[in-house]
């Protein structure tokens, strides 16, 4: 797509793109290239010299059982959060789309968690599940569970999943609602005349027609779990106990902290970049085509 009419000016356009380009070059491309470069070097303990080591950092990384552990953690986390928040959001959106009264009120009451920072949401959920005084912790104890997310890795994971899902429902709800509203009512009516009951109409018409939205949301939710939950994990568990909630991004953050293992941290960054590039490309391919069924 191009404009038919344009301005011709020798300097102005460069001046206009300059601020944006300056920031991207200084704070995006230069650091990203440094991450790639330094992933081939190892610094000594004082950070004074660094030696070229080729793929050594990557080799160490792929020989590190913790790295695979962290991949597993990220995968479990991503699948749990995506599945739970999409199902709950879809259930709520379908009810809100029934043309009932007070739709706007429900929408308002459901969407605001989008504005809550992940770390803040995390702190509230730790409080509710704090083993000795938390409200929900008492309930869980009453059910006979020995609840202590500070010691039990699975329980810590459950806690971060709950907090992440709680925050993400609002986003998914809005997109599902928009997707549902875009489905022509005549299709539903035609199916109803043919005698299809609501449940059947949902699974044979509404759900397939929603598939582009669902697919888009799956990608967005995976990106959310990968990158935006760092604050949540840092606030809730600090990656613990015993690395049970250490996601890939959190590991980059931890390993390079205080100038620790910078080479290793950068090698992980490079791998993450490849993951983002793949995810973003998938997301944009979807935008190009819009319809996938």
């Amino acid at each position: 797509m191009e404009k038919r009419a344009t301005f011709s000016n020798k300097f102005l356009p460069y001046l206009l793109v300059a601020p944006q380009l300056a920031i991207t070059l200084v704070f995006f491309y230069w650091p990203a290239s440094q991450a790639v470069k330094e992933s081939f070097f190892i610094q000594d303990a004082f950070g004074t010299t660094s030696n070229f080591v080729g793929l050594e950092n990557y080799r160490t990384l792929f020989a590190d059982p913790y790295y695979f552990h962290s991949m597993g953690v990220t995968a479990v986390f991503a699948i749990a959060v995506t599945f739970a928040s999409l199902s709950i959001a879809l259930l709520l959106a379908v009810q809100a789309d029934r043309g009932i009264r007070g739709k706007m009120a429900y929408q308002t009451l459901l969407v605001w968690p989008y504005a809550v920072a992940p770390a803040v949401a995390g702190v509230i959920w730790i409080f509710l599940f704090q083993p000795s005084l938390g409200y929900f912790a008492h309930l869980v104890r009453a059910l006979g569970v020995d609840w202590n997310p500070l010691l039990d890795g699975n329980q810590a994971m459950t806690l971060v999943v709950i907090a992440a899902v709680w925050k993400q429902i609002s986003y998914n709800f809005l997109f599902f609602l928009a997707g549902l509203q875009a489905i022509p009512k005549s299709l539903i009516e035609a199916a109803a005349i043919d005698g299809a009951r609501p449940t059947r109409r949902f699974w044979t018409i509404v759900f397939p027609l929603l598939s582009p939205t669902t697919f888009f949301l799956v990608v967005v939710n995976i990106v959310y779990v990968f990158f935006d939950t760092l604050g949540l994990i840092d606030a809730v568990t600090g990656g613990g106990p015993a690395k049970a909630t250490e996601t890939l991004v959190y590991k980059v953050f931890q390993d390079g902290k205080l100038g620790g293992d910078l080479g290793g941290s950068n090698a992980q960054s490079v791998i993450l970049m490849i993951i983002v590039i793949v995810l973003t490309s998938i997301q944009f391919r979807y935008v190009e085509r819009k319809v996938t069924y």
């Binding site: 793109v17 944006q20 380009l21 230069w30 960054s269 970049m273």
Partner: peptide, 20 residues
Amino acid sequence: LIFLTLMFPVEVRIYPTYKI
């Protein structure tokens, strides 16, 4: 150049950006 910055969230270039 602008479009591709989508591929580099802060989280994947934490320490080099900090250094700059």
